[in-house]
Design a protein around this nucleic acid. Structure first.
Length: 435
DNA sequence: TATCCACAGGAAATCAGGGTGT
DNA sequence: ACACCCTGATTTCCTGTGGATA
């Protein structure tokens, strides 16, 4: 992110490009810090690599590998390990070259799209359109294609973030269909590999699926600080120029990420961001100062990105909450008021429709789940039950993001009429005593 | 102690918008 | 043109509920 400091001299674009073309003094290959990068070695994942290799090896001989699940928190190397093993498997000198189809259920999130994605990755020519066809037709087409194209080989279907799929409607059905693919195939065989962040997601799983998918599983434990350090050292060798990292930089990144359940992705992001900050400041060395700054920035970046990516209605709910916290007599934020303020301000923006209380309740939950606000249900006796809402992020940050959203910028200072009614003032006074 | 408010939140239905093949 | 498909957002309908008040 660029800083928009007005006091700075004018941006010298020629100089910028000149410098840019000289190449980075910090990085040599910053992609190595990307979480999608697959390194030569995966430190501290031996037993997992071995497990997966053992499960999948029979594909080389044309046998059907068992379905299995991988559990572990974010950034424990689940995806990387699978990619790593699949890469190695492909390099083996075997008649049979298995297919690997990778599906992130968070992005390819509906039954239709999963089937279509599988079909389209295999088929070079006729693609299935992004929408329009009945599912069972696609399913039949897919069966035909698998037998034809994959032939007597094996097709691995890797379902990343499978827990999200299960929670959605239709998720169980599509999983069940996928587990039953083999029964309808003559030549080729398929194998499912599920990846989940939640250990107990099997609770929502259809029992029929558990029997074929959930019996075998492997857990990816979180990394501790030492392990993270090893990972970072390996990557840093590739990513950075010689001796640009101060000695304490990597241990600090590792320690910070270890605090967050040992998230390797986070550790890599920290290191990368620290490098970028050093680069931007024209420093030749990355120091702990940059790491600390990186941590702040990273957090804020995530929140900003998240809020900017929310649907407009969700942004308006957030704005409503902001306006209440700013203008309500006692600064008490409750769900009922959010509804009324939202009704008021949505009228200020063309094309935004009125929402029900039910819907707004859902949005409040989403914001709370995202860690932007926290909401506590409280009973006020005769004044009913409501949620008391507080912000979990800094107000400055919030103001900054909201004002950067074009449609919302204009209403940032709108003092809601609703909040000035006697009814609200009275209620606020009573609530103040109750809390 | 019964009452009753102002919501919470589950389930199912509906709507609109993107498509299809015939 | 027509009948039908899938999806995501939202509405409708609904039952549940903690605790201050009468």
């Amino acid at each position: 992110m660029l800083n928009n400091n007005n006091h700075e001299h004018q941006f010298n674009i020629d100089k910028f490009y000149k410098n840019y073309l000289k190449g980075s003094k910090i990085f040599s290959n910053r992609d190595a810090l990307d979480s999608s990068y697959i390194p030569e070695e995966l430190p501290h994942r031996d037993s997992q690599i071995r497990y997966i290799a053992e499960k999948t090896a029979c594909a080389l001989l044309g046998d059907t590998p068992p379905n299995f699940l991988c559990y572990g928190m974010t950034g424990t190397g689940k995806t990387a390990t699978i990619r790593y093993v699949s890469q190695k498997l492909a390099q083996q000198n075997s008649e049979i070259k298995p297919w690997w189809i990778y599906i992130n259920c968070n992005i390819i999130s509906t039954p239709y799209r999963i089937l279509a994605h599988i079909y389209n990755t295999i088929s070079r020519r006729d693609k299935i359109p992004p929408t329009g066809l009945p599912k069972d037709i696609i399913f039949k087409k897919l069966l035909g294609l698998l037998d034809l194209k994959v032939g007597h080989s094996i097709c691995f279907l890797v379902l990343d973030e499978i827990d999200i799929l299960v929670d959605r409607k239709g998720g169980n059905e599509i999983l069940y269909d996928l587990t039953r693919l083999n029964e309808n195939l003559d030549n080729c065989k398929t194998s499912l590999i599920g990846i989940s962040n939640k250990l107990k997601f099997r609770a929502n799983l259809d029992p029929r699926i558990i029997s074929s998918l959930g019996e075998e599983h492997i857990v990816f434990p979180s990394y501790d600080a030492n392990e993270l350090r090893d990972i970072l050292i390996e990557r840093a060798k590739i990513a950075f120029q010689e001796s640009v990292l101060k000695e304490e930089v990597i241990p600090l990144c590792a320690a910070l990420a270890a605090k967050e359940h040992g998230d390797a992705r986070k550790a890599l992001q920290l290191l990368r961001k620290a490098g970028e900050l050093a680069e931007r400041d024209q420093n030749k060395i990355v120091s702990t100062k940059h790491v600390k700054k990186a941590q702040e920035d990273l957090e804020n970046d995530h929140i900003m990105e998240y809020i900017k990516g929310m649907p407009l209605q969700a942004q308006l709910i957030l704005t409503s909450i902001y306006l209440i916290s700013r203008f309500s007599p006692e600064h008490i934020i409750i769900s009922g008021d959010i509804y009324d303020v939202h009704s008021e301000i949505r009228g200020l923006i063309p094309g935004v429709r009125q929402l029900t209380k039910r819907r707004i309740s859902d949005y409040i939950n989403e914001l709370s789940l995202a860690g932007i606000i926290s909401a506590e249900i409280k009973s006020m006796g005769h004044y009913g039950r409501t949620k008391i809402i507080k912000f979990d992020i800094g107000l400055e940050l919030l103001e900054k993001v909201l004002s950067e959203i074009e449609k919302i910028n204009g209403i940032m200072n709108h003092k809601p009429v609703f909040l000035q009614t006697d009814k609200v003032k009275l209620k606020n006074n009573i609530f103040k005593k109750l809390i």
